[in-house]
Design a protein around this nucleic acid. Structure first.
Lengths: 182, 182
DNA sequence: ACCGTAGCTGGCCGATCGGTCAGTTCTGAC
DNA sequence: GTCAGAACTGACCGATCGGCCAGCTACGGT
């Protein structure tokens, strides 16, 4: 339930995004966010129902995008799904790379978080598409490697321009899946 | 400095390893460990200097193994280093998969932890070997993908027998690096 | 001039955490 | 039996955390 936007609200979200990505959710206190956002701790709780609500609002967009993408992929059959899955996933991971970092920084808790409850199913569908609808262990394992490899690479602070990163991750992923680019 | 072993000591370490892997370091309290290990919280602190000491003792073996492996890799030149790096890293990740899970569950903090201070350098050397000593962005990015992909795959609870996982991860990693197996 | 309300704050609360300590129980050496 | 020390524990402490509340300030409508 986002309230009408305000300058301070955006400021808080920006500060929280930076701090969560750097120190994790549990590793960031409301005090830390307040200092970074140049306001009081009580002001945070005026704009947001609680610490968790801040996280929820930050992670809702990537969660919804992931769900939407994985739903679209279900329309594609067999190996036709592989390339769209790779490019779509890489794009998503790059667009929300800070959010990915937050999720990966505290995976166990995040997967238990309501707003991310959709992730296991979405990731399953994504893995299914990456595996070209194959149920063989080999395909499932390589799909998992691609999902993890892209996420970690995006979360790590690699000094390379976004264009190169995107291209190389897409090609690398396709190689991993055994579908080298001509 | 590990004291002489005792039954309770091992019991505590086992309990802590399970709980840290499942809920993360910060997500596990001394109380939780005490319950799991069937002893009092005070007893934990009799056997260990503190919560951190438990973590240190759990992560020292994998840290030392990683350091040793990356040191050995420095002796290999150019592309000769790639395959040993892959098989070595996959083996290490599988052997210490619970510890990998702990580290990845709270990456930011863990990298700041003294016992894991060796990791950035070791990972750098590993990436260097995986990249076949190349400094091109493409090679560095794919190396990063392999490191992340293997770690995440190993940390995730994939239902596949260890032999298959090892084989497929090694082959998948080699494909990612553009070195398909015959 | 008055008022309602949105925005914001300092101060406080209960819960939980890691850690300490005095004291008890167990056990093997003599 | 006695005693020393290892093993273990319940009770407690200070710090930190997320969250709550009474109240202050600024401002637009009437």
């Amino acid at each position: 339930m986002p309230r009408p936007p305000s300058a301070m609200r955006r400021q808080i979200l920006d500060a929280a995004l930076r701090l969560f990505a750097e120190h994790g959710f549990k590793g960031t206190s409301l005090h830390d966010i307040a200092v970074e956002a140049h306001c009081s701790k009580a002001s945070l709780l005026y704009h947001f129902a609680g610490k968790d609500a801040i996280l929820t609002e930050l992670l809702t967009p990537p969660a919804e995008s992931l769900t939407a993408m994985s739903e679209e992929l279900t329309a594609l059959r067999g190996e036709q799904a592989v390339e769209p899955a790779v490019t779509g996933y890489v794009g998503l991971a790059m667009r929300f790379h800070l959010e990915v970092k937050i999720i990966f920084a505290e995976l166990p808790d995040m997967l238990g978080h309501p707003v991310l409850a959709v992730i296991p199913r979405a990731v399953d569908q994504l893995a299914d598409a990456l595996a070209g609808r194959s149920r063989e262990p080999r395909a499932r394992i390589t799909a998992q490697m691609v999902i993890g490899g892209v996420a970690v690479t995006v979360a790590a602070d690699v000094d390379a321009d976004p264009g190169t990163m995107r291209t190389e991750m897409v090609q690398g992923a396709l190689r991993t899946l055994g579908r080298p680019t001509g």
